[in-house]
């Protein structure tokens, strides 16, 4: 490994992230196959629409598990806003949309990421609850189930759209981010640009893990 890289995530964080991401992606794909007749053919790759339906349902259980783990892990860091810097950051949209001379410094997660996390947490829970009931629709009142299908579809609209936002910002939209979710090691330059306050915090607390250097924290 290159010297001077900084560890941004540990293996557990990355494992939960990929469990959530891959199950979500697969749910989107199998969901699309059921939603559009023109996409029924996606299901043929998986052995037909009936198989796809059950794959969707059981992957839903995996997604539910990953979601709970993710919420437990990230709630403290990404579920609560810290004022006033988060508000200031939002006023300038983090410098993502127009030119900003000095973007307010934020911690490990910026408010955009926090909103993304909250949206995933809330709509993810909506998907799990509605999905579980839709799996056994006949033991619930038809009126209820009819509206749950609406909620499930609404959640899909949000999650599917957000998926692409996330994909863009995690890759070409902010170069240097992707390694955080693959190897876990990022460059100091990236950290300084994306999460300056977090970098300072880690430096002050001595929790910074730098490759090729003695681990000061442990």
């Amino acid at each position: 490994m290159k010297k001077g890289l900084i560890q941004a995530t540990d293996w557990y964080e990355r494992l939960v992230h990929w469990m959530l991401a891959l199950s979500c992606l697969f749910l989107c794909l199998t969901g699309l196959a059921m939603m559009f007749h023109s996409l029924n053919s996606i299901a043929n790759l998986m052995g037909g629409l009936t198989v796809t339906k059950y794959l969707h349902n059981f992957t839903g259980l995996l997604f539910a598990l990953a979601l709970l783990l993710a919420i437990k892990m990230w709630w403290q860091e990404a579920g609560v806003f810290s004022m006033p810097e988060d508000l200031e950051w939002m006023m300038v949209a983090g410098g993502y949309l127009w030119h900003v001379d000095k973007v307010p410094e934020v911690g490990k997660y910026n408010p955009g990421q926090k909103m993304f996390f909250l949206a995933v947490a809330i709509f993810g829970l909506v998907m799990v609850i509605t999905g579980l009931i839709m799996w056994f629709p006949l033991i619930f009142p038809a009126m209820l189930v009819r509206w749950l299908f609406v909620l499930h579809a609404l959640g899909f609209v949000v999650i599917f759209a957000f998926f692409f936002v996330h994909l863009y910002l995690g890759t070409i939209g902010s170069p240097g981010s992707a390694p955080a979710m693959f190897s876990g090691w990022v460059t100091r330059a990236w950290l300084k640009k994306q999460h300056p306050k977090w970098l300072k915090e880690m430096e002050e607390e001595g929790t910074l893990v730098v490759s090729g250097e003695e681990n000061k924290a442990h």
Binding site: L5, G95, I172, G173, P175, T187, A189, Q194
Partner: peptide, 24 residues
Amino acid sequence: SFLHYIIHGPKTPDEDGANKMEGG
């Protein structure tokens, strides 16, 4: 996303001298 990329551009880490040493 595409428009953002070509108009505003990605959020790239600053390439100043201080960071060059630190790998990346």
